[in-house]
Amino acid sequence: MTPPMPFRFRFRVRYGECDAQSVVFNARYADYVDIAVNEYIRTLFGDYQHLLDRDLDIQVVSLTVNWKAPAKFDDVLEARIRAGRIGNTSFTLHLEFYRYGDDRLIADADITYVMIQPSGMAKIAVPERVRGLLEAGAPGVLISHAGELLQES
């Protein structure tokens, strides 16, 4: 049996994100990771404010991106997100970026966050509720900001 698709987020490459070589500028992938993870976090926990209201927050401690193929202006990219390692005070999310339409792998990334308590600016253990939501993920969920769903109709 095929496992369900992981959480997916689609977006369109904008002109200003491309460089003189007419491909997405490498530094933009950090933005793409951040935008996709924000949609994932919103899906898992609701509005980000829900974490902050519980005196919880996350801070990036590591981001690694590996490029596989170029993306160009107006391409629709699909970020697929799964939880990686969930430790005592940190967790890693694994992202894969595919070009929508031909399913070509464009890049993959691992981002590690540390759980903090903003009131004390100190790291804390990942709460069990948060751990459970991260472990469950959001399989089958698709959020699109690209407009491609309208074009399919």
Rank of each mutant, 00 (worst) to 15 (best):
T2W: 09
P3Y: 06
F7G: 02
F9H: 14
R10C: 10
V13E: 02
Y15R: 12
E17M: 07
S22K: 01
S22A: 14
S22C: 02
A27I: 03
R28Y: 07
A30V: 15
I35D: 11
N38V: 11
E39T: 03
Y40E: 01
I41E: 09
I41V: 15
T43A: 00
F45L: 11
Y48G: 13
Y48W: 13
H50D: 14
L52H: 15
Q59T: 14
V60K: 01
V61H: 05
S62N: 14
T64R: 13
N66M: 14
P70T: 13
G87S: 06
N88Y: 05
L95S: 07
L95T: 03
E96L: 08
F97D: 00
Y98N: 09
R99P: 04
G101R: 05
D103Y: 05
D103R: 13
L105Q: 12
I106T: 08
A107G: 02
A109G: 08
I111L: 05
P118N: 04
K123A: 12
A125E: 00
V126Q: 03
P127V: 02
R129D: 09
R129G: 06
G132Y: 00
L133D: 07
L133E: 13
A136C: 07
G137C: 10
A138Q: 11
G140W: 05
G140I: 07
L142V: 12
L142G: 01
S144A: 15
L149M: 06
L150C: 02
E152Y: 11
